[in-house]
Amino acid sequence: MILFGVRSPLIVDVEETLFRCHIAVTAAVSISGVPRLQDRSRLVDLAAFGAPAGSPFLATAFAPRRRRALAEQALALGLVPAPALIDPTAVLPRHLRVGAGSFINAGVVIGAAGLIGDHVLVNRAASLGHHVLIADFVSIGPGATLAGNIRVGEGAMIGAGATILPNVRIGENALVSAGAVVRKHVPAGALVAGHPATLVSAAPGRSSLDMDDGE
């Protein structure tokens, strides 16, 4: 497994899951910023990186935009997304598709009949109900709760401890603030916050909510 981009605090959780899954790191590629790895024995700069085409990678950024950018860089080098990395402490149903390049962190619980896209992050102790549909490059923060029949559009981000009530749709690239309680559909590109969640901005653009530390 090649870890691509290692400046996000998320990387330490990825390392722990790889250890529990007995998966070896062949290289940890530093793109920019300060690496946050615990084990730097495989750390290399992008300029010095070389790996055979077809080698599997995992883009480790928390923010969807940053993770997408890392994935595009890795693909341009001929790497391929690794199979989903799922922590052994996560509780998953028998029939669940988790896409390539995704990371399911420790303590996550997912209900039956769901679908998780590619390059998705589901962070520590998040809970996803039955029939959830999570599109590509979504980030779900630690302790977030998504009830049944939730749809989350590509590139959206759900903050830590947020609650999404049943049958709600979260649009593409939308941002749900930490601790928000969402009872209604969220338009694409919108930022919502509060209890109950209300619209803060219809087009927040680049926000501190979707940036990695040190970016």
Results as ranks from 00 to 15, higher is better:
A90D: 00
G159N: 02
P196N: 09
V6G: 01
G107I: 07
G148C: 12
P166Q: 13
H195R: 13
V138C: 03
N149P: 00
A59Q: 02
A126Y: 10
V200Q: 00
I164R: 08
L96I: 12
P88K: 00
G159Q: 05
I2K: 12
R97T: 14
R65M: 04
L115D: 14
P166T: 04
G159M: 01
G161V: 07
R97A: 12
A178N: 00
I110C: 05
S207K: 00
S32K: 15
G117E: 08
I11N: 04
V108L: 05
T198R: 15
N105Y: 03
M1S: 03
A100Q: 14
H130L: 05
I150G: 03
I134P: 13
V34G: 01
H130A: 13
P166A: 02
E172N: 08
I11M: 10
G159R: 02
G214D: 09
H185Y: 07
E16F: 01
N173M: 01
R124L: 11
P196Q: 04
P35G: 09
I164E: 01
R68F: 11
A82H: 11
D210L: 02
T163V: 15
P142D: 01
R169P: 02
T163C: 10
G161Y: 11
I170H: 08
A61K: 05
V176C: 00
S139C: 06
F4V: 06
A27D: 08
G148E: 11
R151Y: 14
D118I: 03
R94W: 07
